[in-house]
Design a protein around this nucleic acid. Sequence first.
DNA 1: GGACTGACCATTTTT
DNA 2: TGGTCAGTCC
Length: 796
Amino acid sequence: MSSFDEDDAFENAVPLSAQAMAARPAPYLDDLNPAQRRAVEALDGPVLMLAGAGTGKTKALTTRIAHLLNTGRARPNEILSVTFTNKAAREMKERVGRLLGQTVEGMPWLGTFHAICVKLLRRHAELVGLKSNFTILDTDDQIRLLKQLIVAENIDEKRWPARQLSGLIDHWKNRAWTPDKVPASEASAFNHRGTELYDYYQQRLKALNAVDFGDLLLHVLTIFQEHEDVLAQYQRWFRYILVDEYQDTNVAQYLWLRLLAQGHRNICCVGDDDQSIYGWRGAEVGNILRFEKDFPGAEVVRLEQNYRSTPHILGAASGVIDANQGRLGKELFTDLPEGEKVRLIGHWDGEEEARWIGEEIEAMAGGTRGMRRVGLDEMAILVRASHQMRAFEDRFLTIGLPYRVIGGPRFYERMEIRDAMAYFRLAVSPDDDLAFERVVNTPKRGLGDKAQQKIQVMARSQGVSLADGARLLLQDKGLTGKGATELRILVDAIARWNDAVRAGEGSHIELAETILEESGYTAHWQNDKTPEAPGRLENLKELVKALEQFENLQGFLEHVALIMDRDSDDDGAKVSIMTLHGAKGLEFPAVFLPGWEDGLFPSQRSMDESGLKGLEEERRLAYVGITRAEEICTISFAANRRVFGQWQSALPSRFIDELPSRHVEVLTPPGLYGGGYGAAGMAASASPKMQQEAGSDLHERAASSNVYNSPGWRRLQARSAERPVSQPRENRNMVIDATAVSSFSEGDRVFHRKFGYGEVQGVEGDKLDIAFEKSGNKKVVAKFVVDAANADDVPF
DNA sequence: GGACTGACCATTTTT
DNA sequence: TGGTCAGTCC
């Protein structure tokens, strides 16, 4: 459920008048290279900006907006500019503002497809049988609803899970198929009941006055298609249209854009066909490939100068992407110094890979790798699938290497969870003003803006927290009536909870439940009759359950704060771990790309389900991965990996074959099998199944029975022969001096970078069993803890 | 209602 | 292997 402001979208009074703007100079243009400049100055008519990775796409796009405003071609509220994520929208707003040297108010139509559609749909909801205060269901709500439908229809929910139906409906909505437009070829979907259930589902949504994410677009599209007058109004209003990440648009979005652009054709689409990685959720690379046909006479501008990566990195990336068919074609170049070659290394198994990368990161962070020191937050590990993250987390936890997982669970971002957390925060620290602000009137306590302002004023004048300010305000009788009574109850409750926390008696789980009860928050959702309420309650239950793994509320809050605040998480530098998808649009000086094995990357499933198309998308993913790196890019693979508890062997990824050798340096894995690639070991462990699978596909690989005949393999061997020795990296001073290691014994108070303070419970060889104050009992290698008295000496 | 058990299954993810 | 889910038992 989200709320969007109705603002000055259609008002003419805007901060920048056309005349005033037209007179302004355009110093920002001098900042652009020739291609960027052309993309910015070609204001009228259709423009396709093909922007390779790291070529200053956002700069060109935002400068273009600034230029539109500056030349007086459009007012801020006449520019429609769409992005895919809120983050991108935020960034664009900021940058346009910076370019113009002022806050750009009134760019109401700069936002995500979804946010813009919400605005439009609220205006015209009645045209599709909704009321303008419709609620927006998230994926969870959607699945719950579908489940109800499936059960009501007496369908075996085991065989035909709601999740699958939800995926199917999303797929159809992405293609702009309303229930009546789903083609006959789809009739057999979901046990021949797919279309029927889709229809029921839409009826149900309408009855609930609700929409799902797909509907936002689809309803607006329907309105545009069926109400010419409405469409015409917007065609006139949006004088200029800009679209970011055009290669990610799906059919519905494409149709939507095409309708809006039909009149003036002032549409500028920015994208990179080589970075299209969302085909699996409906994106159509075809949209960008077809642009010139859709908009004849379109100007195509290629941004090819890369400002991010070294020539070796770019060369490696181009080598890979060259293998794809039907590209629009771009050749990236850079002025940057040559730098290091892309490094390639094979490992015995996944754990070894994680260990090596951990050491490498420590070496780079410690400046002992013979290159400049690289900060932890300048490094990232990009994986194909999130389950790969685990090996790294385990390893980094043990060695105390700070890391952050990006794009993790979204659970803690949910409104009800955040509300509940705010109550917990108040219980732990009543001075937490942000938490107080968040929940002071949730549930509704009759404390509106006025009352809250009074509290603020009181708190500020007395220099106390909001909770204390509220108490003073009540003492002064500065508030009366229902609000005062309610506020009294809240303030007293907070004090009581805080006492309970401080006394540390009783279970923190019970306390949490008490807090949710006494605050009226649980009741608030129990009384809520909207379709999402049951889900919210369930989430709250889950939240309480999550508390069990912690010893107290403080420990829990600390833990959640770490995973929640991606941005404000500045308590020191950390290595980022994320998926390749999640890394799109980001860049790091040093990037690790582990798990380059056939079957894992490219993913077997992609290839099975989507054939060559799937493989090409995987290849684009590889391209995206490599081009995230600015200076150092390290690709690795493991011969063996545990998959669902079973050991499996795999061959190096076919993408490795595609890396041009002149841009690659092969490192031999240190230790274990004494240089060389340990081919014998690899072959011995390769399961017959994997060998067959790996050899049987689209790719021209060597005969399946012989691992050594594959071109990639031969090349690897040749390469490692060229440069057989890895540099030994002894004595990495990242870790605490070895003399400290042996000195721990039972009862010692120690400190660990990740787990904090604790007491040694037992010693087994070099492993210590430690009871940590906040994280519970853990076994940790001795050299990663220090005596509590020396906690300041911990590295990083 | 909550604890336990066995079956099942297992990319990528934003809105 | 391990997380989720539904069914079962107290």
